[in-house]
Every structure is written in C-alpha cells, then in structure tokens.
Simulated assay, not measured.
Amino acid sequence: MDKPTSQSGTVLLVDDALDNLRVIHDSLQEAGYAVRVATDGFAAIESVRRMPPDVIVLDAMMPGIDGFETCRRLKQSLDTREIPVIFMTGLSDTEHIVQGFQAGGVDYVTKPVVIEELLARLATHVHRAQLMTHTRAAIDSAGRAIVAFDGLQHVTWATPLAQRWLQPLLEDERLPLPLRHWLHGSDAGETPYALWHEGERLLFSLLEPGLLSIQRHASLPEPETLTRWFPLTSREAEVLYWVTLGKTNREIGEILAISPRTVNKHLEHVFEKLGVETRTAAASLVLSRGQS
C-alpha cells in the first residue's frame, strides 16, 4: 500500500483503552496523518469543537457517554455534523453495526483493528472530507451563502458563511419557524423571504427543493432617507419602508392606521415612480441603493 503524504489529513482518535490508543496512534502517525487523541466522549466533543479534524476514529464502547452517543451529539451541531466518523468496535453483531450507522457513522472497523484496513478506509473518507471542505470554502470565498435542508427542514449542509448567519436563528437545527411556513407556501419558489436579525436583513431564496441561498443586507434606510433617494411622498416612503421589511398590506395598514386598500393605492404609485412591478423588485431596489 502506498504511504500517504504528510498532508494526508488530521484524525481524532478516541479510545479509552490506552494500549490500543498508542498502537493505532503510532501507526497513523507513521502513515502520515496528524493525529490527536481523546480518551472519552466528552473530551472528544470538546476537541472537535475546538479544532475540527478531517475524520474521527471512535471507539463504540467507552465509559461515561459511549461512542454512539458521542457521535449523535456531534451530528446535532451544524458545525460538526459533516465530519465523518469511523467506529471501532469489538461487537460484530448486526445490531451494533446498525446502531453505529444510525448514530451518524459512515464506516466501521472491528477490534482488534487491522491497520491496513483502517488506513484504506481513512484514505477514502479523508479525501471526501477534504474535497467537501474545499468546495464549501470555494463557495464561501465567492460570497455565496448556501444552505441545504431535508424534508423536515433540518439543516443538513451549509457553507461557512451561511453557518455564521443562520446559526443564531436555528431551532434544534431546524430552519426558523417563519421560514418553514414560507417554504410550505405556494410562492416560495418565486418570492424571496426576509428575516430580520440584530438590525440586519437576511433574504432567503429557494434555488431548488432542499436548497436555499441567503443574502444579508445592512439595516434599512428610514423613510426620510427614502424620500431623498426617490421621488416619493412621505406616506409612500413609509409604505415602501414596511414593504421592504416584508410586511403585508394588512400589516402596513395596521401600523400606519390606514386601510389595506389605501396601502395598495400608495404602493401602486411607488411602483410607478420606481419603475418596478412587484414588491420584491421595489425592496431589492431599496437594498441595492443602500449598498451603493
């Protein structure tokens, strides 16, 4: 077997059996991997959060929290769920093998570990992990914030930029409730959805089923500023301001103490003066002007 280069990758080795830990550590290090170690599940989780490895080689049976629970906890976090986990176990029955996969593992080896077999599996998973990392970094460097989600709106993958923007809004790793409601609506593929967080606007667009892009805009200009930017009356500027915040005509009417029909009339004038035809186009014009 060809010996991996010194750039083979980083492995976190987790095992409470020190003799086994030492043998595997030395073998992986000799094969060119940078190896970190942990002797229990809690230490492993802390190590991963502090500095994510390319792959985790995890003993299934340990005191405290076992390997299965350790893996489940890592898979619950958007920051660590993509790291592949290879289980080590002396349990060869189907039940425990299935349990490892159900916990989020991608592979397993049985004890006593055959080093050549472990190296072969590591090479495959490290390569895939590094390719995924490079892909995410490339998308991130291009300024794209992309999020993938499953049928229950759990986030399954995100670029680093999307992670930073979205993490404070997640509910048990699910997309925010208003966003989930929007995804179930009939116009999700046509009209972007806006969420405000700490004075900034996150604009979500559905690229295809299960895939969102996010754009972030700074705090919205006040109506007084809009009257300086565009040929609008004060009331039209107020309506445009709340439209850009994603409010409906009924909500705007309640805020401004006017009827939804009157709001719609003002909005028609706004569209005509701005040379646009939709609420989304009007809001996009405001946001693009604010960034210029």
Rank of each mutant, 00 (worst) to 15 (best):
G41T: 05
D79K: 15
E190S: 08
D40Y: 10
M51D: 14
V85N: 02
P63A: 07
L177G: 04
R228Q: 15
S92Q: 14
T159A: 03
L91N: 06
V113T: 15
A123S: 10
L274Q: 05
A148T: 15
A282S: 15
L274T: 08
P112Q: 04
A44P: 01
V263F: 04
Y108R: 09
L267I: 09
T94S: 13
Q99M: 11
A31S: 12
T80R: 07
S259T: 15
H154N: 09
R235N: 13
R228L: 14
M132D: 09
D150C: 11
P53Y: 03
T233H: 09
S292M: 14
L212R: 01
M132R: 08
L131Y: 12
T94N: 15
I252E: 02
R72F: 14
G32D: 04
L28I: 05
E272V: 07
L195T: 00
E95H: 10
E198A: 10
L13S: 03
G32E: 06
D172M: 07
D172H: 14
P160L: 03
E116V: 13
Y33N: 06
S205V: 07
V114C: 07
G275W: 06
A282E: 01
D187I: 09
D172G: 07
F230P: 00
H134T: 13
L256E: 07
T110V: 12
L166G: 02
P168R: 11
E277P: 04
E222P: 12
G104V: 07
Y33Q: 09
D107L: 05
V113L: 13
G90I: 09
G185E: 10
E116H: 11
P231I: 08
K265S: 12
V37E: 05
K273M: 10
V147N: 00
S205Q: 09
P112S: 13
G253W: 11
F87M: 11
I45K: 01
Q29D: 15
V109F: 05
K111R: 14
